[in-house]
Amino acid sequence: MSTDRLRIGVVGGGAFGRGVAKAASRTGHEVTLWSRRAGAVDDARIRVSAELADLAAAELIFLAVPSHVAEQVATELGEHLDGGHLLAHVSRGLVGDALEPVSSVIRRLTPVRRVGALAGPLVADALALGTPSGAVVGSHFPEVADAVREAIAGPSLRLYATDDIVGVEVASALVGLLALAVGHAQARGVGPAALATFLTRGMAEASRLAERLGGDPKTLAGLAGYGDLLAVMAGDERPEQAVGRALAEGRPLLEATRDAGGYIEGVTIAERVVTFAAREGIEVPICDAIARVLAGRPAAEVLQSLMVRSAGGE
């Protein structure tokens, strides 16, 4: 690891943004966190700014905003960046009806080309506290993965790299969706075998989507896909799971998402995945089932319709 201090910018004062800022600052780098809230972070070494222009001086920028504001933030941020910046996003969403990966949004709306996606079982708390964890950086550019490593990896964080950025982004988004189903199923007392079948077939759907969007289905077997899903099963208590549980308990969706912390990527993506898949001729019965439950259909009926589908080759 280089001893040079990197200038790092973090966009987004949410839990993940703050976690990245803390991890990078702990590694000894110079960190500027963009957040609309003053005092977003309790670390004197981290400079907090409400001006995106202040990030122009950064060499590596982490974009940690929800996917539904990615376009807006990228447009504003793009005004201050050029081809020299490296950028990694941590979004777990896909944008719009075309399920556009966030990396693609960044390339469309900013001059930045050297883009990466950070994903996997890594959660905000692990970053902030430095507890052992692992993640993967997807990027066509090896230097992006190297820079992210330099910024936040260390004895407690193992960072792997792949050039299949789209695969990483699709995996990350679809695991978020499945995490909802995990919360829901666990609350309803669905047994391990049924849940495992459901999730494995869900991951098969994710592979098909990844492939259609230009990713490699094999990436789903890595940290961004199964790695992340195993962390859900091991009980990393992420917001999607909490929403799923609340829904199973009969609480309305709005209330459930509010209690889980606001914007939940997995909730918004279900319907769009189903529409996209129908248009592209891809079979996604699991995603469709989750979408129907989110739309308020009785879970028992939905599950029943899944069970009576004819099972084909795996």
């Binding site: 075309a98 556009e100 990966p101 693609s104």
Partner: peptide, 9 residues
């Protein structure tokens, strides 16, 4: 042309 935002731009 999916995911080729750059192309669109």
């Amino acid at each position: 042309l999916l995911g080729t935002a750059l192309a669109a731009r």
